[in-house]
Amino acid sequence: MSAKQMAFYFDQNRCMGCHACVVACKDWNDVKPGQARWRRLSDEEVGTFPDVKVFNLVMSCNHCANPACTAACPVGAIYKREEDGIVIVNRDLCQDIRACLVACPYGAPQFGDDTSEPVKQASWAVKHPMQKCTMCWDRLAEGLLPSCVASCPQRALDFGTAEAIAAKYPTAVRTVVGFPDTDKDANGNTLKSGDTVPSIFFKPKA
């Protein structure tokens, strides 16, 4: 375990599914339009018209306490920071094996393509090494909130240490409609590395 674990909070009642956080993330991190998206929005319709409820969910990397990606990466390109629990990929090390993509329950590992990432950097071993959310660690270093959290017009997102989030939102829960099983990989198989313990808290839609 890290000394400290930063975490997201998501109020599913407030989210209207506008993608402001998705684009705020891409803009800040200079992720070009294309298939790589560090933060993603999904929605689930329950019921039939007109009695239908829409469950939005926005999610990036959940910077798990027990990340499946780091365990799965055969080259050790992904690591978890001791001081704040943020999971970081060293793109120079990535070999595009994509074991992380299979292991991650949340679809967090992202891969660019030739349109969005036309120039291969000299230090990269592969054309499109894995990329993902850093919790905007550059912004955190300057005392700013992650770009997504600061962007939300509906104030559906919050951020802080897991302890602080749990204290601020005592009724918060650890899963919500649309959220994957935390101990299953992308193919639905139980993770050998154990439950990921994602660093995200929820207020479920009433």
Partner: peptide
């Protein structure tokens, strides 16, 4: 800031097999 990898080093040997891998 520089931080050092403390965990997740189980794959070290595997990485060596890939030889060409790594940073700059």
């Amino acid at each position: 800031r520089r931080t050092f990898l403390k965990g997740a080093s189980v794959a070290g040997a595997t990485a060596a097999l890939y030889g060409c891998g790594g940073g700059g």
